[in-house]
Amino acid sequence: MKKIIYLLLLSSFVSFSQTEKKSKVTFTAKIENRNSDTLKIYGPNRFVEVIPIKNGVFKATFETTDGLHQFSDGKESSLLFLKDGDDLKLTMNAKEFDETIVYKGKGAEESNYLAQKALTDEKFEMSLEELMAKDEATFKAALADKKGKDLAALESKGLNKKLVEAIKPVIAQEEMMLTQFFNQKKVAAKLVGTPSPTFNYENHKGGKTSLESLKGKYVYIDVWATWCGPCIAEIPHLKKVEEAYHANNIEFVSISIDKVKDHEKWVKFVTNKELGGIQLFADNDWNSQFVKEYQINGIPRFILVGPNGEIVNADAPRPSSPSLVELLDSLLK
């Protein structure tokens, strides 16, 4: 999963202040069941190092800037911390990506901390559904407990001060973000069974498409934008779901909330990425009536509407979540 908190950490990686001094580091990785023949390391200044594979091992020595980085194998990614003189040696099994990450060598402490935090955060997020069913006081107590443990772990490991300075505010923001997530789920739950807000938006293929015109079918709606990284990450999964259910009584509708000035960007994006389903462009980005009535304050947001026009789930599972297939199978098969 690692969706909510990981994205917050990733945003800190982009904004984390850096020194101008270049640092020289060595990165070596031995990966079982690899997803790709290359790795990419993204640094604070959008630095990218592609590491070709040789004899089953990725290895490169390069210059970057001290701070948070992200490595990706093209399918999954993880955060690490690099500083001058580091000689990191990573071992992992790509089939159990997060669970098997282990660093050794100079500078390993910080990156091992980030890997373990990702695991802890993922386990907490997996418990969110159960916590959502409880009262607000219980949820807030769980958040406070997590925050206390995260701060204790951060302070007890003797980590690089720059990393500690970067992560501390993130831990504080996690509590706020997850509280907003809780409130969003509660609002969405109250909408189930009520008539869905409607739309009548420009269709990429021409003309306009309204929600009413799809009555009689289930409608899975993706509210997204071309600038939204997490939205784009869901596209390959959405394509697979669309393909799996193309013969069923369901329509897949993607509503872009890009600004009007980015209309042409949306047109080209849909064409170049060969996006399927019904591709629509909202009339007033975040201020579109459909978006406001669903109280959407973060994207991607997925919504499932029933054949009778009533809301089945106002905050439906993402395409990348196995629970979406379970939900659709229960309704369509």
Results as ranks from 00 to 15, higher is better:
152 A>T: 08
152 A>G: 02
152 A>F: 05
152 A>K: 12
153 A>E: 04
153 A>T: 06
154 L>W: 00
154 L>R: 07
155 E>G: 02
155 E>V: 11
155 E>Q: 08
155 E>L: 15
156 S>A: 15
156 S>M: 14
156 S>K: 08
156 S>T: 03
157 K>Y: 04
157 K>P: 00
158 G>T: 13
158 G>P: 13
158 G>Y: 01
159 L>Y: 05
159 L>Q: 01
159 L>I: 02
159 L>P: 00
159 L>W: 00
160 N>E: 14
160 N>H: 07
160 N>Y: 01
161 K>N: 01
161 K>H: 09
161 K>Y: 07
162 K>A: 15
162 K>R: 12
162 K>V: 10
163 L>M: 03
164 V>L: 01
164 V>H: 03
164 V>M: 03
164 V>D: 04
164 V>K: 03
164 V>N: 03
164 V>G: 00
165 E>G: 07
165 E>M: 12
165 E>R: 09
165 E>Y: 11
166 A>E: 13
166 A>T: 05
166 A>H: 08
166 A>Y: 06
167 I>C: 06
168 K>F: 06
168 K>Y: 11
168 K>E: 10
169 P>T: 06
169 P>W: 06
169 P>I: 01
169 P>D: 01
170 V>W: 03
170 V>Y: 02
170 V>L: 04
171 I>H: 03
171 I>K: 00
171 I>M: 02
171 I>P: 00
171 I>N: 03
172 A>G: 10
172 A>V: 09
172 A>W: 02
172 A>C: 07
173 Q>T: 07
173 Q>G: 07
174 E>F: 12
174 E>L: 12
174 E>Y: 11
174 E>G: 10
175 E>P: 08
175 E>A: 13
176 M>D: 12
177 M>A: 10
177 M>E: 15
178 L>A: 08
178 L>W: 00
178 L>T: 11
178 L>P: 13
179 T>N: 11
180 Q>R: 15
180 Q>K: 12
180 Q>W: 02
180 Q>L: 09
180 Q>C: 03
181 F>L: 13
181 F>T: 05
181 F>Y: 09
181 F>C: 10
181 F>G: 01
182 F>I: 04
182 F>L: 08
182 F>T: 04
182 F>E: 13
182 F>Q: 04
182 F>N: 11
182 F>C: 04
182 F>W: 13
182 F>Y: 14
183 N>M: 10
183 N>A: 06
183 N>D: 10
183 N>F: 13
183 N>L: 11
184 Q>A: 04
184 Q>F: 14
184 Q>L: 08
184 Q>H: 12
185 K>T: 12
185 K>N: 10
185 K>H: 14
185 K>C: 09
187 V>A: 15
187 V>M: 15
187 V>Q: 13
187 V>P: 13
187 V>C: 08
188 A>Y: 00
188 A>R: 03
188 A>C: 12
188 A>Q: 02
188 A>F: 04
188 A>K: 04
189 A>C: 03
189 A>L: 04
189 A>I: 13
189 A>P: 05
